[in-house]
């Protein structure tokens, strides 16, 4: 991994069209501004990872699980 030292308001350029700016530094929190083309998705890694994991888990559903669930909802609705 490339490691660069930057101060507040300094910028890193990645390729031709991505810029990363150090917007603010306060204690252990750093505000980072990213400007990139729309086609580039930018996410906080922990959220990206969580959604990735949920998608994986969701793709494992079985028809019988979903059928049972739908039955349960019908029973509840009929109460």
């Amino acid at each position: 991994m490339l490691v660069l030292s930057r101060k507040k308001d300094e910028v890193i350029v990645i390729g031709d069209d991505i810029e990363v700016t150090i917007v603010d530094i306060r204690g252990d929190q750093i505000k980072i501004g990213v400007s990139a083309p729309r086609s580039v998705s930018i996410h906080r890694k922990e959220i990206y990872d969580a959604i990735h994991a949920e998608n994986k888990a969701a793709s494992q559903a079985t028809a019988s699980q979903v059928g049972k669930l739908a039955d349960l909802l019908r029973q509840r609705a009929n109460k």
């Binding site: 959604i51 998608n55 969701a58 699980q65």
Partner: peptide
């Protein structure tokens, strides 16, 4: 929203953030 269905139907979760 995408849901994760588990063996216990009550344990279904939905991904509301994505």
């Amino acid at each position: 929203v995408i849901v994760v269905v588990r063996d216990q139907p009550e344990d279904i979760t939905a991904n509301l953030q994505g």
